[in-house]
Design a protein around this nucleic acid. Structure first.
Lengths: 337, 337
DNA sequence: CTGAAAGCGCTAACAA
DNA sequence: TTGTTAGCGCTTTCAG
């Protein structure tokens, strides 16, 4: 395996000249560069990353940290798309990309320490759920750039984060239903403990407010994101005296249950009853009828995370910022045309 | 940031002694080790991975290569579970874990070259679809251990691979349906171009053979894995003179269409008609009725891949082997009890 | 059991 | 524009 010396020798120059060629230094004339590049190709030479990292003290690697407990719950396809978005940016920069799962490793600070102090990573993308003040402080102290996936939760420090614009998504969904002539829109699946869920709720409320529609607390249902909960809760809604004729579902799975309840009640979808859910498209397509959804672009989210991270890596005193990725409405068969 | 010299100085020993302590060498007495470990902790010292890699010529990193074209198709949650399985093994060894996507990078050989010659990786896990003879040869030449996800396809060389036991899965599904009293079992969604699909088909045939049931080619339907195809194909099956009373679906999505067709035909599931599909559990649970499935354990598959890879890394002349991960039947509401 | 010293492959002053 | 040289932080003979 050829190294820089071999190339230098073959080219009749010093290793510095080769090094400068590798790094495309201005001071080397183009023809020299060309010649040396030629030789590198002929010798099948690729710079040794470890040597380079050792001297420059950079790992050319960033890390996505996930925090997955149960083996089965790893199915969340969202993270996979985020990964893909990150990766796309990472390879543009010729960096590499480590994925680390807290749960299969050690304690939180230990993982970060391991990655950072051993110089395995130059920056970290991690879920907001992992970020408490201590972690932030420790990251700052080590001067490690990081980006939070999701709006920070229990933190006062200003940090850089990327999230889906959940509020506007739900707002748009609500507006859309009203626009299509539905009179009374319910909100299914409120869960105040989840920030993204709360934001969706806020969007729903916002939309009603700005249309001067009175909020009917009976139309707002607390429940979990399961088929069974969706079914039960929708039944309850339909049993109401002032029964709604449309619903915004805070999450995807419960909409399967909700649809069943609506059908069983003898209502036609979308004529008598409209529904918009948050969900992954693939699953929404499997339902009968197919479900109109608020689309969230996790791929874009991943890309933004990586971009912001690289900004910080390239310029240490970049300002912290929060970015909201906008959503779009994908109208399928649960809403009127 | 403390380095090995600082530790040596603080401990009043040479760097060799510290190094030996780090690597838990037999020649250092336990009490000395304890003392030095203490000091490392106090100094908050972690070995610099790059320096270590440079000297040992090992990267302590393995790579999962994926080959994802379209941004949206990255949703395949299977890969995510495989990743998780791999990662679990990787972190046991204190290795790190790179994910590289061919499509966001350069040409196939270039990616491998980049990873291998730059010493970024010690081993590679990659889908069988990527492995042609040239790639295998090149990997062998560089002495890079690798494991194929999935039975090799267009390759004569013996290599190490891991796959799901698709044949036995379908076999078991077919047996189960027969055992439950269904008389005539169809096979929906044959696609000879996909090896996993063909294996499932073989399993179906096997089961019928060993029960001495004649194969009725009308009951074997070629179609794609979409809801619409499942619907159409099932309609065709039900229109048959010698109509089946059960079906094995070769893949998940088409079962949603198939179920709809069965219901529309006025048949009760599972009383009049039984169905078993290959699918992810989460989606199978969303259907009405919930779908009985052949479970495939991708997490285990990932773990096995990593284990086999590490065997090769640790012992260069390990024999090539193929491993089939067994499946299990998850009986839900589309099969009789 | 321990230390001295060479060297892994590259980069970056500094000098020319 | 180029070369010389001194490391980067660690491991590993070899000698003691």
């Amino acid at each position: 395996m050829a190294n820089i010396k071999d190339v230098a020798k073959a080219a009749g120059v010093s290793t510095s000249t080769v090094s400068r060629t590798i790094n495309n230094s201005k001071s080397i004339p183009d023809d020299t560069k060309a010649r040396i590049n030629e030789i590198m190709k002929k010798l099948n030479y690729t710079p040794n990353q470890n040597a380079k990292s050792l001297t420059t003290n950079k790992s050319y690697t960033i890390t996505l940290i996930v925090d997955v407990d149960d083996e089965k719950s790893f199915q969340n396809p969202f993270f996979y798309e985020i990964m893909h978005g990150i990766e796309k940016q990472v390879y543009k920069k010729e960096y590499s990309f480590i994925v680390a799962n807290l749960k299969t490793m050690m304690k939180k600070l230990t993982v970060l320490d391991w990655l950072i102090k051993s110089k395995r990573t130059e920056g970290v993308i991690l879920p907001s759920s992992m970020l408490d003040s201590i972690t932030v402080e420790s990251l700052r102290k080590d001067k490690i750039p990081f980006v939070s996936i999701g709006e920070p939760i229990h933190i006062k420090e200003s940090i850089t984060w990327v999230d889906i614009d959940n509020k506007r998504g739900a707002e748009a969904a609500t507006f859309y239903l009203l626009e299509k002539g539905y009179k009374s829109v319910a909100f299914l699946g409120l869960n105040q403990t989840k920030l993204f869920n709360r934001r969706r709720y806020e969007g729903y409320l916002n939309a009603l407010h700005s249309e001067n529609i009175e909020i009917d607390s009976k139309l707002i249902i607390d429940c979990n994101n399961t088929k069974a909960d969706g079914y039960q809760s929708m039944k309850a809604l339909l049993a109401l005296e002032k029964c709604p004729d449309a619903v915004v579902c805070a999450d995807g799975e419960l909409s399967f249950g909700a649809i069943k309840a609506i059908k069983e009640h003898g209502l036609a979808i979308p004529e008598d009853f409209g529904l918009i859910s948050y969900d992954e498209s693939k699953i929404a397509e499997l339902s009968y009828p197919t479900i109109s959804t608020v689309n969230v672009d996790m791929f874009e989210m991943g890309q933004q995370c990586a971009k912001l991270l690289f900004e910080q890596i390239e310029n240490q005193n970049t300002r912290d910022q929060g970015i909201l990725i906008s959503t779009s409405l994908n109208c399928r068969e649960t809403t009127k045309n």
